[in-house]
Every structure is written in C-alpha cells, then in structure tokens.
C-alpha cells in the first residue's frame, strides 16, 4: 500500500470540504477499499473517513421509506431493520461474514457497485432514493455499469431511502469462496407494482427484470413466471458459472423469492 493521510471529519460538510482536495477519496468501512489499496489499484493521497460522522449513522422510518444513514454498517441494518423491513435485514445479515458486516457500510456498497454485491439489488427493487451531499438520485438512474455509478468526484452517499414494500424476499446463491452472490434476486411487491432486481448475473451490473415484473404485477405467484427466461447473451461467465447457468439460476431464484414472499 502506498502511504496516504487520513482525515476524520465529524460532519458531512467537513467531509465534503476534505474531499475537495486533490486525490482525496472517501473511506467507508474499508472492506473493499483497503484490499484495493493493498493491491495498489488505487493510490489516493488522502482518505476521508466517514465513520465519525454521527449524521450518517442509523436509520428511521419516514413516509413509508426506511431511511438509512450512508455510513451505517451491515450489522446495524441486520439487527435494527428486522421489524421495519425484514427482507432487507436478512440481506444485510447475509453479506460476507460477521467481521465484514461490522465494518462494511451501505453507502460504500452502493458507491462501489460491485456486479455481485447485494445492496444494489435491494436499492433497485425498493425504488430507493440515494441521497448525496449534493442531490437525490433515483436508484433507477444511479447504477451505471460494473463498479460505476453516476456519483461525481468527491460526492458522498449520505442516506439511502428505501420504500418499504408490502412483501419482499432476497434469494442469494452464494459463491462459496468470495461469499458474494453468484446470482442474487430481490423481489419487492408494492400495492400497485412488483419490482424484481437481479445482481451477479449481467455484464452490465445490477438490472431490473421487466418481463418478470409485468407478469408478477398481475399475478404474484411463482406460476406467473412459467415460460419466462432471460437470454444468456449479456450474462457474466466465469469458472463458477457460465452465461447459460446464470440465466437459468436467476429464473430459479426469482421463483424462490416470490414463493418465499407470497
């Protein structure tokens, strides 16, 4: 790891000011960034730690949405969202392992947009609004391909507002070595629509499976998915699963998620 300075602001305003410096980068829980720095894939001259900012911690319910501070750990969501949004709590409690969940944050996970990460699927399926120091971004507009989002340089995710559905479920087929999702599907049923978000599958990153959404919106049962499939072209392929395997898996997981939520 190349050396860098570390700053620990206690307010969003101070963090944004610190991030305006040349080659400064935000540090969330460090569970992705520290390994990246060790590999020298990034070489910021300054890290701005977000962990000391009280206004970015914790969660509250407001207008049907669960609003989670951008620096809130996966462990906190797993423990505290069980009543307000159980499917989300279960997703957070299934990320990595306990030590990763104690440090990793929702803001870091969304900003990183790993194509196999769990939170991007929850944000997309929940029609979330991603709040930054500068603006509010709909989850539908936020993710921009592998490891890319529409966040500008120095912009930080301060809060994530997830609409709480009537019923929801996340099915993750665990890649046993990395503990990320080989494929993960989040199904959320709202009063007037169903949203289905898929992670770990597409070469473009997390996406909504609109045909399944349409079928489930008129009939919320696994049977409604009969005969629907996603074309293997455009799926990711690696030693753990081919394109066809992932395309098949996402169909199976969607059915399981609907069956578990219904």
């Amino acid at each position: 790891m190349y050396n860098f300075e570390v700053e620990k602001p206690t307010s969003i305003a101070d963090a944004v000011a610190a991030l305006s410096a040349d080659e400064a980068q935000a540090l969330g829980g460090g569970q992705t960034l520290i390994p990246t720095l060790k590999q020298r894939l990034a070489s910021p001259s300054k890290l701005v730690s977000l962990s000391g900012i009280a206004e970015m911690q914790g969660m509250r319910l407001a207008a049907g949405s669960l609003c989670i501070g951008g620096a809130t750990s996966h462990a906190t969501v797993a423990a505290e969202a069980t009543g307000s949004y159980p499917a989300l709590a279960a997703l957070a409690g299934g990320i990595g392992d306990p030590a990763v969940r104690n440090r990793g944050t929702i803001g870091g996970s969304l900003a990183n947009n790993d194509p196999a990460a769990c939170y991007p699927a929850a944000a997309l399926a929940s029609g979330a609004v991603i709040v930054t120091n500068a603006r509010e971004i709909a989850a539908d507009d936020f993710f921009d391909g592998l490891f890319t989002t529409v966040l500008e340089e120095g912009e930080i995710v301060t809060e994530v507002r997830l609409q709480v559905p009537e019923a929801a479920n996340y099915q993750k087929f665990v890649q046993p070595a990395s503990r990320f999702a080989l494929v993960g599907v989040f199904v959320a049923k709202f009063a007037n629509a169903v949203r289905v978000a898929v992670t770990g599958a597409s070469e473009e990153g997390v996406f909504r499976w609109s045909e399944a959404e349409a079928a489930l919106s008129s009939n919320f049962s696994a049977d409604a998915l009969e005969g629907l499939s996603v074309a293997p072209e455009g799926m990711m392929a690696d030693i753990h699963g081919s394109k066809a395997y992932r395309a098949h898996l996402l169909g199976v997981l969607t059915k399981r998620a609907v069956a578990a939520a219904a």
């Binding site: 570390v6 620990k8 540090l27 460090g30 569970q31 520290i34 390994p35 890290l47 730690s49 962990s51 462990a75 306990p98 030590a99 990763v100 104690n102 440090r103």
Partner: peptide, 18 residues
C-alpha cells in the same frame, strides 16, 4: 480477528488510525 469496541473485525482490513 480482534474486537474493536466489543465487535469482531478483521484487523488486517482496518486502519490503526480508525
């Protein structure tokens, strides 16, 4: 793994300054 403020963390993935 060590405990920091009562919870388990991977000490190879946390900065001492934190």
């Amino acid at each position: 793994v060590v405990h920091v403020n009562g919870v388990a963390v991977k000490s190879c993935t946390m900065l001492a300054i934190e």
